[in-house]
Design a protein around this nucleic acid. Structure first.
Lengths: 243, 243
DNA sequence: ATCCTGCACTGAGGCAGATCAGTCTGACCG
DNA sequence: CGGTCAGACTGATCTGCCTCAGTGCAGGAT
C-alpha cells in the first residue's frame, strides 16, 4: 500500500493538496508498524514521553478516567485517524487510549513529528486542519451530552460514525460494521448500559436503525437525521482547501 | 503594546520560542483592530467566508444552537484566545460567537492566516499546539458534563477559569473578576439557571468558593480541587516545548 | 419618589435516566 | 457434554435535576 492510498494520507490530502515530497514524508511516518491486542491500553493518563500512532486497521477509543472509577469515552478512532497527538505535543498524556479490536498502527515519535513539520511545513497546516476537524467532533459530542436526550444522542452518534466510516470507505449510507459493545456505547454517550439497550430497542422498534450482531443497519436515514438534528457539514467538504 | 506583550504572542511563545521574524508576523496579524458591543453575535452558525479574531480585551463565548431553541456554550474566550479558527479553516462556521462583554479584537482574514503559515511555518506548529490545548479543554468539559454531577462540574469550571486567567495575568490563586451571569454559566454547564444558583449557594455555604457581584473568591482551594477532581496539567507546562 | 427591568434566589412537583437484581442466549472449553 | 462467562435484555425502584411559578432587591429611567 503506498502512502497515497493509506487512509491517513487520504485524509490529509482532503485538506491540503500534497506534493511528491510531502507524500514521501508521510510514507516515512509509516515506517514503524506495530500490532496491538484488543483491550490492553496503549497510552495511559499521566504517562510522559509517549509516542503517537497512525491507525491503519482496527478500532480504538480514547477516554478519561475519573476518581470514582467511572470513565468517559471522548471519541472512537477508526483507520486513518491519528492517536495521541496531544500526548506528544504536550509531554504528558491527559487521556488513555484502548484498542477496541485488535489493531495495527504506525508509531510516530515526537521527534519524527516535529522534524516532519519543520521539513514539510504544509503538513503542519494539514495536521492543524485534521486536529480542528477532530475538535469539531468533540464539540458535537459535548453538545450532544449537554443538550440532547438519550435517544437523539444515540441517533446522532450512529449517524456520525456512519459518515466518518463512509469517508474512509468502510461503510455506506445504509449501514456499516461496528465492533462496539453496548457497554462501550454507554461510556461514550454518558448513559448506563441498561439505558443504551432500551434506547436501541426503541430505535429498532420505530424502524429507524438496527444495531445487532456487530452491524448497524440504517432503515430510515431522513427520520434519523431529523430526530438527531444531525448536520454533517462539520465532517464534510469537497476538494482540498489549500492548493 | 508590542506583539511580545500581547496576550496572544505570549501564549504562542509558551509553545514555540519565537524569532524576530515570527514576532513581526504576529504583529501584522494584529493590524485590523475592531470593537464589538456586548450581546451581538460576531460569528453565526452556517455563515461562510468568515474572518477569525484574536481577542485583545473582554470576554466572549462560543456556542451551538439546537433546533428546539436550547443552546450549549462550548467555551468562554478570554484575552489572548483565538476566535473562530474553525470558521476560517473550514469555509463555513459550525458555531456562534457572542461577546459577553464589550470587546476589542484584531480581525484575521483566512488569507492572512494561510499566508502567515506559509511564510513563518513554525507559527502553524504553534497554532496546532494552541488548538490542541483548546481541544483538551473541550474534552475536559465533555467529561464534566458526562460524568460529573452539578456541584463537581461547577467547581471544576470555576477552577479551570481561574487557571486560565492566571496564565494571562488576570487572576490569582485566591480569586478573579468574572462578568458571567448565572444564565451563561447554566448554558455552559448544561444546567438550568435555577440549579446553578442552588449549587453556587451550596459551594458558598460550605466555605469553598464565593461567586457574587462579578467576582469569584476561592476560599478553600484544596477542598475545591478535591471535590472537582481537578488536574491542571492539561493547561500548564513550563517553558517553550519547541526551541 | 416610584416604576420598571434584570438578576439572584426559593419551594413544590415531575420526569428522564440511574441503579439493582436479576434472566436468557450463545461462544468457548475442559 | 455440562460448566462458565460475556453480552444482551428486562422490570422495579430510586434520585438528580428540571420546570414552573413565584419573591426580593438593586440600579436606571421617568
Amino acid at each position: 500500500m503506498t502512502a497515497l492510498q493509506s487512509p491517513f494520507a487520504r485524509k490529509l490530502g482532503a485538506f491540503v493538496a500534497l506534493s511528491a515530497t510531502e507524500i514521501t514524508a508521510i510514507d516515512k511516518l509509516h515506517a514503524r508498524k506495530k500490532q496491538f491486542p484488543a483491550g490492553r491500553d496503549i497510552v495511559h493518563q499521566g504517562q510522559t514521553n509517549q509516542s503517537a500512532y497512525i491507525l491503519a486497521s482496527g478500532w480504538a477509543c480514547s477516554y478519561k478516567l475519573l476518581t470514582g472509577g467511572t470513565r468517559q469515552i471522548v471519541d472512537f478512532q477508526i483507520p486513518g485517524d491519528f492517536l495521541g497527538l496531544r500526548s506528544v505535543l504536550f509531554r504528558t498524556s491527559d487521556h488513555n487510549i484502548e484498542p477496541v479490536t485488535q489493531l495495527e498502527a504506525s508509531e510516530v515519535l515526537a521527534s519524527d513529528l516535529l522534524e516532519t513539520f519543520s521539513n514539510t511545513p504544509r503538513l503542519a497546516t494539514a495536521m492543524l486542519w485534521a486536529a480542528s476537524r477532530d475538535e469539531a467532533m468533540v464539540v458535537e459530542h459535548l453538545v450532544g451530552i449537554g443538550r440532547r436526550d438519550a435517544k437523539e444522542r444515540t441517533a446522532h452518534f450512529l449517524l456520525e460514525l456512519g459518515a466518518r466510516l463512509k469517508l474512509v470507505g468502510l461503510g455506506t449510507t445504509s449501514g456499516y460494521d461496528c465492533p462496539l459493545s453496548q457497554y462501550l456505547l454507554a461510556d461514550a454517550l454518558g448513559l448506563s448500559a441498561v439505558h443504551v439497550n432500551r434506547v436501541l430497542r426503541e430505535l429498532r422498534e420505530e424502524g429507524l436503525v438496527t444495531f445487532q450482531h456487530g452491524h448497524v443497519e440504517i432503515h430510515d436515514l431522513d427520520a434519523l437525521v431529523l430526530l438527531a438534528d444531525f448536520d454533517k457539514t462539520y465532517l464534510d467538504h469537497d476538494g482540498p482547501l489549500l492548493k
